[in-house]
């Protein structure tokens, strides 16, 4: 693993300018300078170069405005040699694949398909619009999703983790760019710029939840919890939480999945009360499990403790 010496920001700042060059495909124009004779003043060369740059920038600008081009989306954040790339190859690629498509070499040994960062939503979120916050991803990387076979990575520094978060978000964004480009090529009402905007929106949450503690009046109430469970959960998780409520459930990509048996299955997102709160409130994107924006804070907490009781967990106080 290569050591990270320079800060991430440098990479980010470069992003826009580098991207323009990637699209235009022009070679650096300095080559022409040497071919010229010294008899002409060198300032003119500079002027010529500046004009060439201006013109090519102008045309690149036109390209992003015009109809959708099917050029593959490039990004310095994920290109070989970048910090993110090195960290990803060293820590994640074995399962998630070198290009993050969930097709790593270790995949065969796993019961759970590793996430395809380009084509799948992230599952464990604390938002109502199915998009993870950076903190959600940091948590997944640092602590792992043990029951989902993703190991914790305590050896990663905060900085490395943050770079990896940028990296997977960028893979996801580029995945959207590709998908949308395929979908809308030939659609005169859509431009490359529209696609860039939509793809950016798809990785930028607008509705993070605040994880509010129950009020001082809160008491766990088994009957209330059970009623809420019957109203909101049994359709899929079954009346006793055994995961037998839904016939042949599918994920968003149409693959068969299992509804969690809350009485015996390990909970992949984590079974502490805060994680349960997030799953119940925000749902699990990419699966049939919906968000529950209509429930009150108190109702979600009742469901958290009722679910804990189904798991055979002792009823804990609220503590971290």
């Amino acid at each position: 693993m290569k050591k990270a010496n320079h800060p991430v920001k440098t990479l980010d700042e470069k992003t826009d300018s580098l991207r323009l060059w990637d699209i235009s495909g022009d070679e650096p124009t300095n080559i022409h300078v040497k071919a010229q004779q010294r008899s002409i003043r060198w300032e003119y060369f500079v002027a010529v170069i500046v004009v060439i740059i201006a013109v090519s920038v102008f045309f690149v600008g036109c390209q992003t405005k015009g109809p959708i081009t099917s050029e593959p989306a490039m990004s310095p954040t994920v290109s070989p040699g970048s910090m993110g790339y090195e960290l990803f190859q060293a820590n994640c690629a074995a399962c998630h694949g070198t290009s993050g498509r969930g097709d790593g070499i270790a995949r065969m040994a796993l019961d759970v398909a590793p996430r395809d960062f380009r084509n799948e939503p992230f599952r464990y979120v604390s938002t109502l619009d199915s998009i993870p916050t950076r903190e959600d991803l940091i948590q997944t990387i640092k602590h792992g999703r043990v029951h989902g076979q993703m190991p914790a990575a305590p050896w990663l520094s905060d900085e490395s983790t943050s770079i990896l978060v940028d990296y997977v978000l960028e893979l996801n964004r580029l995945g959207w760019v590709d998908k949308l480009t395929q979908e809308f090529t030939g659609d005169e009402e859509m431009t490359s710029q529209d696609i860039a905007e939509i793809a950016f929106e798809r990785v930028t949450t607008e509705e993070p939840i605040t994880l509010a503690m129950p009020g001082p009046q809160f008491r766990t109430n088994f009957t209330r919890g059970e009623t809420l469970f019957m109203e909101s959960c049994t359709s899929c998780h079954g009346p006793s939480g055994k995961g037998d409520g839904l016939d042949m459930p599918l994920d968003d990509l149409g693959r068969p999945i299992k509804v969690r048996n809350l009485t015996s299955d390990p909970i992949r997102g984590g079974s502490d009360v805060f994680e349960l709160y997030k799953r119940i409130r925000c749902g699990v994107p990419g699966t049939p499990m919906p968000a529950q924006p209509a429930l009150t804070n108190e109702q979600v907490w009742q469901l958290v403790f009722y679910t804990r009781s189904l798991m055979g967990q002792p009823q804990p106080g609220i503590e971290r």
């Binding site: 939503p121 109502l128 619009d129 199915s130 998009i131 949308l180 979908e183 809308f184 529209d194 939509i198 929106e201 798809r202 607008e206 809420l228 109203e231 909101s232 749902g283 994107p285 049939p288 499990m289 919906p290 968000a291 529950q292 924006p293 209509a294 429930l295």
Partner: peptide, 16 residues
Amino acid sequence: VHTWPKKNRSKNIAMP
């Protein structure tokens, strides 16, 4: 209510 948008943000909302 599970929406499958292409241009908007996707939503999957429970209505108990």
